[in-house]
Design a protein around this nucleic acid. Sequence first.
DNA 1: TTTGTGTCTCTTGATACCAC
DNA 2: GTGGTATCAAGAGACACAAA
Length: 299
Amino acid sequence: MANLYDLKKFDLNLLVIFECIYQHLSISKAAESLFITPSAVSQSLQRLRTQLNDPLFIRAGKGITPTTIAVNLHHHLDNNLNQIEKTLQLMSRTDLARKFIVYAPQLIILDPVKNLFNIFEQEPNLLIEHHDMLIAQQSAEDLLNYRKADLVITTTPSTNLSVVCQPLQSFRLIPICRRAHPRLKETVTLEQLLSESTVSYVVDDPILKSIQVDSHPYFQERKVSFRSSSVFALMNMISNSDLVGFLPDLVYEYFKDFLQLKALLTPVPSPTVTLYMIYNRTSLNNTSFAEFISRISVL
DNA sequence: TTTGTGTCTCTTGATACCAC
DNA sequence: GTGGTATCAAGAGACACAAA
């Protein structure tokens, strides 16, 4: 492994200038190709001479000739500089595989979050890593500050000036049960709803928590028989039992036929939740990310 | 984050060296 | 002497770093 401390002390640009002088065997021609003055090249050569304790080039008539040390240095540098150039070219390629870490609710199957991932899929070398935002231990701002996430989709907006926060989509939490429920028709009273056992979503999200606690007396009075941090486990339980649950209308529309679910019309007002898309303002310096965000904005 | 300071690299202009 | 090239000296601007 390279001794990075020693490399830090050495001005690697001097080697580039050296190689340019060697290729042209002329200070002025090297300066011309590097778009600097001959004096600057000469001074850089002087610094390299001091570092390596060798004149490297000796004046010969109107030009200069390399010393044996310079010939050897060129021999070793040639391949290495070519390798560095190839690495830089590789890094600048736009089709290089890129990895984006997205913290989002489990609702990634839904619009428009689903559309976001469709956009990613159009980029063949893009790797998407998804984490469940609703059970994340850190806030969106912390995830972005510590570069643990490139994009966060959450229910809590941010006013931090270092991040960009924009509304993505709103959805309603509606009561649902299985279609073959023996007691509940499409329209039910509050008393009927309270007489049924329910499922509850275990979540750390402050907005969803406040809905479960404050939005309506029903949520405090209901009898909870099954709790889970998995939206899909809740839906599966509702589909295969007489339990009732409040789930996003988007989830219901997507799974209602597959899981044989039924939406209930109740006097309980449906809480509305808004999803926000948050990302670091500086991330826009990344061309791929900026393009991705611009494409989301036109959805 | 801002500010002050030292260092580095560059340019400009002048000078030295060499071939013709 | 002239022209081409390398080098030196001084100053300007950029940058790194430490302190507030």
